[in-house]
């Protein structure tokens, strides 16, 4: 499969969305709603429950699975109130020392006039900054599309995993193609997809993801059992760290990204 085919696979209807993982992975869940400031954004579903023996807070982007639910979920494009709900529940998780598990699946943060009015940039900025300083373990799993800042707002984590055919990108290949080559023709989009390096293997190679998770949607429950084992193993390690070590690990994880040279001019 080339990068463009992977992009199409990551976006394909019928691919399990956030809610499916929440249902499979966690027990005794209760969904929690609202940002306490403006509204409840259904592009993000969040709540509390157990991951094995661990009480956790889960935060999942949800695209919807049919036309009606996609409309309700705004196609998984969160608005500022979605990020503010997520941040509220992350701070709550911090208070009760329970880990946070995030599922990332969005084309990007919603680019509507209302979202701009309510500070989409500020909401994402605050989420990233607070995640970088969160005194509890955070693990993010990119399950479909990791679209730019809107994805990073739930992925400034201690560990990041990515599904085999999921993608993660600084800009949508369509956006990239139309900026650089004027038109987002299929050919240009395919080229942009290639150039941007957005596949799961790219993420592993660049260190943006710790590991790639194999997909087996025909045996989804079994696949999720594997994910659950992996998350629990990660939490065993992360919860053994001191607060200081945990924050240092997260800081160093992101501190190391960057590829540049030194000149004498």
């Amino acid at each position: 499969m080339d990068a463009y085919e992977k992009l199409k696979t990551a976006r394909k209807n019928g691919r399990p969305t956030g809610e499916a993982y929440v249902t499979e992975l966690f027990t005794d869940t209760l969904e929690l709603h609202g940002d306490r400031r403006f509204a409840d954004d259904l592009a993000i579903m969040a709540g509390v429950g157990f991951l094995g023996k661990y009480p956790v807070t889960y935060i999942a982007m949800e695209k919807g699975t049919d036309l009606q639910s996609r409309m309700v979920r705004n196609f998984g494009c969160p608005k500022p109130e979605g990020y503010r709900k997520a941040l509220r529940l992350m701070k709550q998780a911090e208070k009760f020392h329970r880990p946070v598990i995030c599922f990332v699946d969005t084309l990007g943060a919603y680019p509507g006039a209302d979202a701009e009015e309510r500070g989409q940039g500020q909401a994402i900025a605050e989420s990233i900054m607070e995640m970088m300083g969160l005194h509890t373990p955070v693990i993010s799993v990119v399950i479909g599309e990791g679209g730019s800042g809107g994805a990073l707002a739930l992925a400034s984590a201690n560990k990041v995993y990515i599904l085999e055919h999921a993608v993660y990108s600084v800009i949508s290949p369509e956006g990239c193609a139309s900026i650089l080559w004027k038109e987002a023709t299929q050919e240009n989009v395919a080229k942009a997809t290639e150039c941007l390096h957005i596949t799961a293997e790219d993420m592993k190679a660049l260190g943006v993801a710790e590991a790639v998770i194999e997909e087996d949607f025909d045996n989804f429950s079994e696949m999720c059992r594997g994910i659950k084992q992996r998350l629990i193993k990660s939490l065993d390690k992360l919860t053994a760290l001191s607060d200081e070590e945990l924050l240092a690990q997260r800081y160093q994880r992101f501190r190391s990204f960057g590829n540049f040279d030194q000149t004498n001019k």
Binding site: I128, G149, Y168, L196, F257
Partner: peptide, 11 residues
């Protein structure tokens, strides 16, 4: 710079 430029935001 692809996703590495995105990572600068968190860094």
């Amino acid at each position: 710079e692809g996703v590495i430029s995105l990572m600068q935001m968190a860094k």
